Simulated scan of single mutants.
Amino acid sequence: MYVDPPAPKPKERDETPPASTAGPLENPPRAWEFNPDYQRLVVAWNTVLPQLETLRTALDKAYGLARSPQTWDAPVGERYVQDIREWRTRLAVYRHSVLTSISDEAADTPRWIPTTANAPHAFP
Score class of each variant (00 low, 15 high):
D4N: 10
P5K: 07
P6N: 11
K9W: 01
K11R: 15
R13T: 02
D14A: 03
E15C: 09
T16P: 00
P17C: 12
A19I: 07
A19Y: 05
S20P: 02
G23S: 02
G23K: 02
G23P: 00
P24C: 00
E26G: 01
E26P: 00
E26H: 01
P28D: 04
P29R: 12
R30T: 15
E33M: 04
E33V: 03
P36S: 03
D37N: 11
D37R: 06
Y38H: 12
R40F: 09
R40N: 13
R40S: 12
L41C: 04
L41F: 01
V42E: 15
V42I: 15
V43H: 09
V43E: 14
A44T: 15
A44P: 06
N46R: 14
V48G: 05
L49Q: 14
L52I: 13
T54W: 08
T54E: 14
L55V: 13
T57D: 08
T57F: 03
A58S: 15
L59D: 05
K61I: 12
K61L: 14
A62K: 07
A62W: 03
A62D: 11
G64N: 11
S68A: 15
P69W: 10
P69K: 08
P69G: 10
Q70E: 11
T71W: 11
W72I: 15
W72T: 15
D73T: 15
A74Q: 10
P75K: 00
V76K: 05
V76G: 08
E78M: 02
E78K: 06
R79D: 14
R79I: 13
Y80L: 14
Y80Q: 09
V81T: 12
Q82H: 00
Q82R: 03
D83I: 05
D83L: 14
I84T: 02
I84M: 07
R85F: 11
E86Y: 01
R88V: 03
T89G: 14
Y94K: 01
Y94L: 05
R95V: 05
H96P: 03
H96K: 06
H96T: 03
S97A: 14
V98S: 10
T100N: 12
S101R: 15
I102D: 09
I102P: 08
S103H: 09
S103M: 11
D104N: 14
D104A: 10
E105K: 15
A106T: 12
A107I: 02
P110Y: 04
P110N: 03
P110H: 02
R111A: 06
W112M: 01
I113N: 08
I113K: 10
P114D: 08
P114C: 05
T115R: 05
T115S: 06
T116H: 06
T116D: 13
T116Q: 10
T116L: 09
A119M: 04
H121K: 10
F123Y: 09
F123P: 00
F123G: 06
P124G: 03
P124F: 08
P124E: 02
